[in-house]
Deep mutational scan, measured.
Amino acid sequence: MSGNGNAAATAEENSPKMRVIRVGTRKSQLARIQTDSVVATLKASYPGLQFEIIAMSTTGDKILDTALSKIGEKSLFTKELEHALEKNEVDLVVHSLKDLPTVLPPGFTIGAICKRENPHDAVVFHPKFVGKTLETLPEKSVVGTSSLRRAAQLQRKFPHLEFRSIRGNLNTRLRKLDEQQEFSAIILATAGLQRMGWHNRVGQILHPEECMYAVGQGALGVEVRAKDQDILDLVGVLHDPETLLRCIAERAFLRHLEGGCSVPVAVHTAMKDGQLYLTGGVWSLDGSDSIQETMQATIHVPAQHEDGPEDDPQLVGITARNIPRGPQLAAQNLGISLANLLLSKGAKNILDVARQLNDAH
């Protein structure tokens, strides 16, 4: 009898209710805020589980004197976190989706994509230029951005401005803007500013005609071990179906173009009346040469937790077992079709030249 009692006690200790789920994140304040929001949602869904947040620095956090596009290494903000995932030191990792490459290392998958916040870019102005827009900034004003995508589009749109690289986390960039006289304004992701509670610093939100956004911008991705079915089931509740389908289309477009950090590629997606609209573009580094096109596809946005595919093969690095396969494939095909259209119009040449120029500098 006593033996059975011990077995029952052991089973209770090993039951999922007692389990601590370890969540990996970057150390920056924004990353911690984003991770806290994901953990809060998981806690609400699984009140019996405990969650421990483990923060670590990544290569991208450490190399702050070089433009991201020049470092010449993929997975700048993800490699150390993936290493911890691989060694079973954490069970899942919360990322900004735009930091996750469209091809993940073997053994990993994006197990959830959370509801997207505003994906557009924002302009934050130096205190002396508050009330201005990019259009009304004085001639030769210097605007800071760490992104080739932003610089290429904005140089084309605002030729009277000069664009220079600015690195560091959000706090560091804002301090550089406010305390030094080098920059009249800087460009940042609206979602990051909003998550930090800095709505009052948003001086201008850039519309798609001015600057399309990065693939996955404004959404959070939760990376897990691809074979860890328990954790895949656990994080599945975080999937937002519309965000998922938009981001599958965007990531398929980028992957098929073979774009990345070192080339200016941008997108804009919208879901309306059962249609998914995808606009994508590529630019030369100075913005003088560009190709942009829009395509659409009829896609039914499923309700969360309709029964999805059981075999769960990944699409552009994403596993969404609780979302039907048909809409996911339709979104992926839309991204591939748009990429093929741009490639047929000469996108590869623009991107190759951009890559060579970026590598040469």
Rank of each mutant, 00 (worst) to 15 (best):
D312G: 10
D230N: 11
I187R: 02
F163H: 11
Y213G: 09
H239R: 03
G197V: 06
I166K: 04
G281S: 15
A55M: 08
I299R: 08
S69P: 13
G168V: 01
L238V: 07
Q229S: 04
H305W: 09
Q155H: 13
E135H: 03
I323R: 08
W283N: 12
L329P: 00
Q328K: 13
R195I: 12
H207L: 11
K98G: 00
M295D: 09
I113S: 03
S288K: 07
I166C: 13
E179D: 06
Q181N: 06
A191W: 01
N171G: 11
I248W: 05
L154K: 05
A67G: 09
L174F: 14
F129A: 07
M271I: 15
V39P: 02
L315G: 02
A339S: 06
V93P: 03
E258V: 15
G317S: 04
A112R: 00
G236T: 10
S284R: 15
G335L: 01
K87M: 11
L81A: 04
G111N: 03
I110E: 04
D307V: 09
L76A: 06
A151Q: 14
I318M: 07
G346C: 15
L148T: 05
E250Y: 01
F163D: 04
E82F: 15
P264T: 15
T298H: 09
R225S: 08
K272L: 07
R246W: 06
I231F: 02
L161Q: 13
L148P: 15
K345P: 02
K70H: 10
A360P: 00
H300L: 12
A55L: 10
H126P: 12
A191Q: 00
I187C: 06
T279Y: 12
K345I: 13
E73Y: 10
S290H: 00
F77L: 03
R246T: 08
D121H: 02
M212T: 11
G259C: 10
G346T: 08
E223Q: 05
R116H: 04
S290N: 07
I71Q: 15
H199Y: 14
D230F: 02
L188W: 02
R175D: 06
L100V: 08
K348F: 11
T319M: 01
Q50W: 00
N333H: 14
S45V: 10
R246Q: 14
V235R: 00
I323M: 05
T58R: 02
A330P: 06
E89Y: 13
G260C: 15
T102G: 09
T102V: 05
F129M: 15
G308K: 01
S69V: 10
D307K: 15
L68H: 05
K79E: 12
D233L: 04
R164K: 12
G317Y: 07
T298M: 09
D312W: 05
Q50E: 15
L42T: 05
F163N: 15
E52D: 12
D65A: 07
P241T: 08
D273N: 15
V265Q: 02
L49S: 12
E86L: 10
E250V: 01
D352G: 01
K157F: 10
G48C: 11
H305D: 14
P159L: 10
D307Y: 09
G192L: 02
G326P: 12
F108Y: 13
R175M: 13
S344I: 14
L64D: 09
Q229E: 13
I113E: 00
P324G: 06
G346Y: 00
G192D: 05
R149G: 00
Q332L: 11
S141R: 10
Q50D: 03
V90I: 11
N200M: 11
V235E: 06
L334F: 11
G259W: 01
T136N: 11
D286L: 08
Y46R: 08
A189T: 06
F163Y: 11
T58N: 10
D61W: 05
S147G: 00
L148Q: 12
L85W: 02
R325A: 09
L177F: 06
N88R: 11
D289L: 08
S290K: 07
A84T: 11
S288H: 01
R201A: 03
L278C: 12
Q332K: 15
F158G: 09
G317R: 03
V263L: 12
I291H: 10
H305Y: 15
H95V: 09
E139C: 14
L342C: 05
V143R: 03
N171K: 12
K87G: 08
F125G: 02
L245F: 06
V353A: 10
V265A: 12
V143L: 11
P208R: 13
F163V: 13
A270W: 07
G218L: 04
F77Y: 09
E210A: 07
I299A: 11
S290P: 05
G203S: 14
I350W: 15
D352P: 14
D178F: 06
R173I: 01
Q332I: 00
L68Q: 06
S262I: 13
G287R: 07
R321P: 07
G259E: 11
R173F: 01
E162Y: 15
A219G: 08
A84K: 08
I248F: 11
C261M: 01
Q356P: 15
V94P: 05
F158D: 09
L206G: 06
Q229R: 12
T190W: 13
A331D: 07
F253A: 03
H120Y: 13
A219L: 01
R156A: 14
W198G: 08
H83I: 09
L42P: 02
V301R: 10
L206E: 01
C247V: 09
D307L: 00
S96R: 03
N118C: 14
G131F: 10
I205E: 14
N169H: 11
E139N: 13
R255G: 14
K87I: 13
S290Q: 00
G111W: 02
R195N: 02
H120Q: 08
Q50G: 06
P264S: 15
H305C: 14
L104Y: 10
I186V: 11
G48F: 07
L97F: 10
L154P: 01
E242L: 11
A320N: 00
N349R: 15
T319N: 06
M271T: 06
L148A: 02
K348G: 13
H83R: 13
S290L: 08
R175Q: 13
F51R: 01
G107S: 10
V222A: 10
E86K: 14
I113V: 00
C261N: 02
Q328P: 11
A151I: 06
D61Q: 00
G308Y: 01
K70P: 09
Q304M: 06
L42Y: 04
R246H: 05
S146G: 12
G346K: 01
A331M: 04
N118F: 09
D240T: 06
E82T: 08
T59R: 07
V90A: 07
R195V: 03
D91W: 01
R246M: 09
I63K: 05
L154C: 13
L338Y: 00
G218A: 06
I299S: 06
N169P: 02
T78W: 04
G72E: 13
L100G: 01
R325D: 12
E293P: 01
I54D: 06
H95A: 09
V353F: 02
I231V: 13
Y277L: 12
S147W: 06
V235W: 02
R149D: 04
I71P: 09
D121K: 01
L315E: 01
E182K: 06
A297P: 00
Q50I: 09
E80M: 10
V267D: 00
R246E: 02
N358A: 15
E86V: 09
F129H: 10
A122H: 04
V38D: 03
D240L: 01
I323V: 11
D359K: 04
A360L: 07
R225A: 03
T294F: 09
Q194H: 05
T136F: 08
H305L: 10
N358G: 04
A339D: 07
L285R: 10
I350Y: 15
M196S: 05
T269R: 00
S288V: 12
Q204G: 07
V93D: 04
R156K: 13
K157N: 15
T78L: 10
R195T: 02
L188V: 03
G236C: 15
K348Y: 02
T109Q: 07
N171F: 04
K140D: 13
A331S: 04
T319Q: 01
I323F: 10
G168D: 01
C247M: 04
V39W: 06
T269I: 00
L137R: 05
S147F: 00
L232T: 12
E89G: 09
E86Q: 11
L276V: 14
V202C: 12
A347I: 03
R149C: 03
K227P: 01
Q229C: 14
V237R: 10
L276W: 02
L334V: 15
L68I: 12
L232A: 08
V103I: 08
L220V: 11
G168P: 02
A270H: 11
I110L: 09
I54M: 08
A152W: 10
Q153M: 07
K70D: 09
P138L: 10
S262R: 15
K79W: 12
Q304G: 11
G218H: 01
